[in-house]
């Protein structure tokens, strides 16, 4: 009865989103309106995602028409978002935000496979809005909680062998977290510990962020946008804030996910192509 309700926005850290490479359509795969889902390694079945992080870059990469690309960074990595002529409101808002800035993005995950078989995940923004650090922190906790819940289901789901008979089916089965978990395990052979550490890392960095007095002062920067960037800079210099966070967790993800480096390169290729 999916027809009656809007798809939920899943909370997935960038580090996990980027290591996803499994998309499928629900119900009849031939049906053009069958919703498309991205299944992440921890079993989040995403038709839509909600992300909050730091916008570190944004560029118009379009030709005749504007096509905006931005990079959103969370404590676990980064993900690229796009907004073009079919998302005019989002594109306009993205165009008017000066990075670095905290932003919230609602969008559809996109899976793109390059000619040489690499899979790139990006998010097509439906809505984007500048937010404050309070919201960014709430999101990290939110994403950590949802990821923890999925990991818990994964850890109690039987090993892949038993499910061989039907979970390899590329048609959708009725959704339940346990079934999504089973499919995820079957497809990714998910290393639970890797994602557990990802969540712990994100929470530790959040805790450090909370400990920083700057975070408390910055409770209402939303209505003073011009103060935003200058307030954020001192944090970057401490090497612990969003600007700096980009470099740091990337080091982590690099070792945690061997394909990361390749993906990065490919992402740039892709952007040149479009």
């Amino acid at each position: 009865m999916a027809g009656f309700s809007r798809e939920v926005s899943r909370r997935v850290f960038a580090g996990e989103l980027k290591s996803s490479n499994y998309a499928f359509r629900d119900g009849d795969p031939q049906h053009q309106y069958a919703p498309q889902y991205l299944l992440t390694p921890t079993g989040a079945r995403c038709n839509r995602v909600f992300l909050v992080g730091t916008l570190t870059e944004r560029d118009d990469i379009g030709g005749d028409t504007e096509y905006w690309r931005g990079r959103i960074v969370d404590p676990t990595g980064s993900v690229l978002i796009y907004a073009g002529q079919y998302q005019p409101e989002a594109a306009q808002i993205l165009a008017n935000i000066e990075p670095p800035a905290f932003v919230a993005v609602v969008g559809k995950p996109n899976l793109y496979q390059t000619d040489d078989g690499n899979v790139i995940i990006s998010v097509r923004a439906e809505a984007i809005q500048e937010v404050d650090e309070t919201t960014r922190n709430q999101w990290i906790l939110d994403a950590a909680r949802r990821t923890q819940e999925r990991l818990k289901v994964l850890s109690t789901t039987g090993p892949a062998p038993v499910s061989e008979g039907f979970s390899t089916a590329d048609q959708a089965q009725p959704a339940s977290p346990a079934m999504d978990a089973e499919r995820a395990l079957d497809h990714y052979h998910t290393d639970i510990e890797h994602f557990r550490q990802m969540v712990i890392g994100a929470l530790l960095s959040l805790k450090q962020d909370l400990g920083r007095p700057a975070g408390e002062v910055r409770s209402e920067p939303q209505f003073a946008p011009e103060a935003g960037p200058s307030e954020k800079k001192p944090d970057s210099s401490k090497g612990k804030a969003e600007g700096g966070a980009r470099a740091k967790p990337k080091g982590n993800t690099l070792s945690g996910w061997p394909n990361e480096d390749k993906d990065e390169v490919e992402v740039f290729n892709l952007s040149k192509k479009s």
Binding site: T134, L141, Q148, S155, V199, L210
Partner: peptide
């Protein structure tokens, strides 16, 4: 609007994650 998160909230989730 929901209250800003506190360290205790982070600890709660941390424990839940550690328990997996």
């Amino acid at each position: 609007e929901m209250a800003p998160i506190a360290e205790g909230d982070v600890d709660d989730i941390m424990h839940a994650v550690e328990a997996i």
